[in-house]
């Protein structure tokens, strides 16, 4: 880094404040989940794992978590083929109206989440499938699809077209070229994208809130409904499940593709 002492002082002041802001809720939720008391106080009344025991017993929380997992799985399973194919098509082929198609595929990002959620609620409501879990999965997939396509195009544009031509020269038919050349080349992007899709669908709150009914609440909605009534430490314990999932996905991302890819300009 070039610069003086005053520069690093200013930089670090802002960065420390940002770090505090970013991590305070996580740290506090972690801490609160280990409290021995019946309400959350600071400093905690002592350490215990009893709230983890409590959430293991609570069937409503467990079921909500399973529902969230199902939703996230459906979302990822749908997003992988759809996003991969679209990403490769956009990055590799000369497509007519490419610009319009790109703008169209960015719609999930430009339409506010509440608009998408209400729209999908009306669509699924008219189709009579509201209250099932798969529409929630599909909805999460639609609203986050640009992440998947972005991840795939980013790695597909690094693939040299010569490689595929070389494979064709060696007599590989189209499907083999796709499976053995194109797909492995975009695999880092597919992994990044699908991890993003999974964790974002696991945490998706607003669209879930609009699409679920009382019998099919997902975990974020369940937590939201509970914190509006009374704040008890069992919610902190169940929130730790989310923190653990997030940490796991980050570790996986770092191992498989490296977190640095988010810093690169295309």
């Amino acid at each position: 880094m070039t610069g003086s002492r005053s520069k690093s002082v200013v930089l670090w002041t802002f960065v420390t404040a940002a770090l505090l802001m970013l991590s305070a809720p996580t740290v506090v939720v972690l801490g609160a989940s280990f409290t021995a008391g019946n309400i959350i106080t600071f400093p905690p009344d002592g350490l215990s794992l009893k709230w983890y025991g409590a959430i293991a017993q609570a069937s409503d929380l467990r079921q909500a978590f399973v529902r969230s997992l199902i939703v996230a799985t459906i979302c990822t399973v749908v997003a992988i083929p759809v996003g991969t194919l679209a990403g490769i098509a956009l990055a590799k082929y000369r497509v007519r109206f490419a610009r319009s198609i790109q703008i169209y595929l960015l719609l999930p990002f430009t339409i506010p989440l509440i608009g998408s959620g209400i729209g999908l609620m009306l669509v699924f409501g008219n189709a009579g499938v509201l209250g099932k879990l798969w529409p929630v999965g599909i909805a999460c997939c639609v609203i986050n699809l640009p992440f998947m396509i972005w991840a795939v195009t980013a790695s597909a544009s690094n693939l040299s077209p010569d490689l595929e031509l070389a494979a064709a020269n060696c007599g590989a038919p189209p499907l083999q070229r796709f499976l053995y050349i194109t797909l492995p080349a975009v695999l880092p992007g597919v992994i990044t994208g699908s991890l993003l899709m999974f964790i974002l669908a696991l945490n998706e709150f607003l669209v879930s809130l609009l699409l679920v009914d009382a019998r099919s609440v997902t975990l974020p909605v369940q937590i939201y409904n509970s914190i509006r009534s009374i704040i008890t430490p069992d919610l902190a314990a169940i929130s730790v499940v989310f923190i653990a999932c997030a940490a796991f996905v980050i570790a996986l991302l770092d191992r498989l593709v490296g977190l640095d890819i988010f810093l690169k300009s295309k």
Binding site: V15, L19, L22, S23, A24, P25, T26, V28, V29, A32, I40, I199, L200, L202, N203, E204, F205, P220, I223, Y224, I227, I231, L235, A236, S239, F242, I243, C245, A246, A247, V249, I250, L253, D254, L259, D260, F262, L263
Partner: peptide, 26 residues
Amino acid sequence: RKFLLVALFLPFFIGQVVRAYGWLII
């Protein structure tokens, strides 16, 4: 760099409800 990235992604991946819950406690 990795520390800053992890500190950034952790809240990003935790979801709004849990984070808001943390602020309620604080």
